[in-house]
Computed example of a mutant assay.
Amino acid sequence: MAQAETHYTLPLPSFDKPVKLLIVVAPYYKDIADELVAGAKAEIEKAGGEWELVEVPGALEVPTAIRIAYRQANFDAFVALGCVIRGETTHYDTVCNDSSRALQLLGLDGACIGNGILTVENRGQAVARAEAAGQNKGGGAAAAALHLIALTRKYGGAKEQIGFKPLRDEILLAGEPDGSKTA
């Protein structure tokens, strides 16, 4: 078994206005999902945020649920949680790749998403990663979402004095060097 490495963790951002996150979890492996959710809730609360929880049948439904809420509700960010354990078929690859890609596309569209969907080879790996007192991947996903909220708020203000600005108010057309129209 490989030794666990120490990784740098960014300090949680602070917010001057409240934040609200939607935790979307696929509780297919209920005990693992419960640990992921516990870690996510604790991390959000540590940053002074609020959360709501929604359960969906499986990892493939997590991005769809986030998309619905992103378009129709008022959340600052989303935490995607679940667990996919490799089985005997290629279904594992489909679920891992498609759920991850869909979350990434939503993120590139502007949704702040922390991805905590575990993709592991066996139950032991899942338990080790999910435990809130252990690797706490649920908390890590919530922290990622909180950092994206902070970036959105930092750069999301009105943009002025950026881009093309005409030299003057009137528009000159080709063939009219002085701007006067000829009949």
Rank of each mutant, 00 (worst) to 15 (best):
89 T>I: 08
149 I>A: 10
73 A>D: 15
144 A>M: 07
150 A>P: 08
54 V>A: 13
20 K>H: 15
147 H>T: 02
34 D>S: 14
73 A>Y: 07
167 L>A: 14
44 I>M: 08
30 K>R: 15
79 V>S: 06
6 T>D: 13
96 C>N: 08
13 P>G: 13
153 R>L: 05
1 M>V: 06
13 P>M: 02
151 L>R: 08
130 A>F: 01
148 L>T: 03
70 Y>N: 12
105 L>N: 13
158 A>R: 15
8 Y>M: 09
25 V>N: 07
157 G>Q: 14
161 Q>M: 10
80 A>G: 10
164 F>V: 09
47 A>N: 12
145 A>G: 08
146 L>S: 07
147 H>M: 07
140 G>Q: 12
158 A>M: 12
84 V>Y: 04
99 S>D: 07
127 V>E: 15
177 P>S: 13
151 L>T: 03
127 V>C: 02
107 G>H: 00
23 I>G: 09
95 V>N: 01
181 K>F: 09
157 G>S: 14
81 L>T: 05
44 I>T: 11
96 C>Y: 02
130 A>C: 11
39 G>C: 00
139 G>S: 04
124 G>K: 06
162 I>G: 02
167 L>C: 03
112 C>D: 08
139 G>H: 05
12 L>N: 10
165 K>M: 10
60 L>W: 09
128 A>G: 03
102 A>G: 11
22 L>W: 05
34 D>M: 06
116 G>T: 01
118 L>A: 13
115 N>D: 14
15 F>Q: 06
48 G>N: 05
65 A>H: 02
103 L>S: 08
92 Y>K: 00
32 I>R: 00
2 A>R: 07
98 D>L: 15
46 K>G: 11
85 I>A: 13
109 D>Y: 00
52 E>N: 13
90 T>W: 01
131 E>D: 12
91 H>N: 10
159 K>M: 13
95 V>G: 05
51 W>Q: 07
166 P>E: 14
19 V>A: 06
59 A>H: 00
54 V>L: 15
37 V>H: 00
13 P>V: 03
90 T>G: 14
167 L>T: 13
92 Y>C: 11
15 F>K: 04
14 S>V: 15
39 G>E: 03
66 I>D: 00
165 K>L: 12
164 F>E: 10
90 T>L: 14
117 I>S: 07
47 A>F: 02
155 Y>Q: 11
86 R>F: 02
82 G>M: 00
